[in-house]
Design a protein around this nucleic acid. Structure first.
Length: 218
DNA sequence: CTATGGATCGGCT
DNA sequence: GCCGATCCATAGT
């Protein structure tokens, strides 16, 4: 007789990060389901845009040249550590990707919202179209995360989590320069990865929307 | 529809 | 004081 198995969402674990470059993990995060369990209830959606920050050697990174201050301490933690930081009156968050002491991370920049839509719209009543979670500050507002309390928590045990077995697959992954990072030469041209044609990607032009499936493989 | 400039605020120096 | 891994309103195609 077969054991009855309870279908529980599988939370992302540490081995997801093992032996892979941050750039490889960035592309692999696209389509994963991000969930936030808040006092109001659960909300979340599929990751559609992410940027790699490659640590001490990356002039665009908060940990460039080993910079280590109280606010960026989470970057130096274990893979899967949450790094939340304030930026111009908003908050944004990274997933730490490499072993402790190697301060690389991935900024989650866009979500296609699927869970807790009403509650997210309540938190961000601005506009009815695709502006709910199409940017790092926007998605944190939609989650109503307004402080750094989740800092240094681990994705495997935190109310903010990534579900690895409920994922969609991008039909095409596009790459570009990172948004809002001044860069001199072209060596960071592929540090931003996003689902081609998905309207919840920040700065996606309307003419580039893929209307049929929002850029997902069927 | 796209490009640009101003507001804004937590955290470092 | 100063400075952004941003957002939004407004002006210009």
């Amino acid at each position: 007789m077969q054991m009855q198995t309870i279908k529980q969402p599988h939370v992302l674990t540490g081995d997801f990060f093992e032996n892979r470059s941050t750039l490889a993990i960035t592309a692999d995060l696209l389509g994963k389901l991000l969930i936030y369990d808040s006092p109001q209830g659960q909300s979340g959606g599929y990751i559609v845009e992410a940027e790699a920050y490659l640590g001490t050697a990356d002039p665009g990174a908060h940990a460039y040249q080993g910079r280590r201050v109280p606010s960026n301490e989470p970057l130096y933690g274990q893979p899967g550590t949450i790094y939340i930081y304030a930026i111009r009156g908003f908050y944004a968050f990274d997933v730490v990707t490499q072993s402790a002491g190697d301060p690389q991370g991935i900024l989650i920049r866009g979500l296609e919202p699927t869970i807790g839509l009403a509650q997210m719209q309540h938190n961000r009543p601005q506009q009815p179209d695709f502006n709910l979670t199409s940017g790092p500050g926007k998605l944190m507002q939609a989650f109503d995360i307004t402080d750094t309390k989740l800092n240094q928590q681990d994705f495997t045990t935190s109310p903010l989590k990534i579900i690895s077995d409920q994922a969609r697959t991008p039909a095409t992954i596009n790459y570009s320069e990172r948004i809002g990072v001044r860069t001199k030469s072209g060596w960071t041209d592929h540090y931003r990865a996003y689902v081609a044609g998905n309207p919840y990607v920040s700065k996606m032009r309307k003419r580039d929307y893929e209307q049929q499936h929002f850029g997902w493989r069927i």
